[in-house]
């Protein structure tokens, strides 16, 4: 099986990936954990903000907006 590792901010709209590693600062990491974003969680890019710099992702049935600064330190793998 081919898997590719990239960062979450590079996941194009409507594509699906899986969380591999969260390398954000403690604070952000905790917020993400609170939302149930842990290793192997399925994540899909849904929306891009018109003012740039953040995207909304579908995670465990809800829609969560995350800034690019933070999503660039979340590693994901794409099957």
């Amino acid at each position: 099986m081919n898997t590719k590792i990239t960062t979450l901010n590079k996941l194009p709209v409507n594509e699906t990936g899986f969380i591999y590693d969260i390398q954000c600062s403690e604070n952000v990491k905790r917020r993400l954990l609170d939302l149930g974003i842990v290793k192997n969680t399925c994540i899909k890019t849904i929306l891009k903000s018109p003012s740039n710099g953040l995207k909304a992702f579908s995670i465990r049935g809800s829609l969560i907006a995350i800034r690019d600064e933070d999503s660039s330190s979340i590693k994901i793998y794409i099957k």
Partner: peptide, 11 residues
């Protein structure tokens, strides 16, 4: 510096 922004967009 700007901190993180994590916000849920409700249905």
């Amino acid at each position: 510096i700007p901190s993180s922004f994590v916000l849920e967009l409700p249905p």
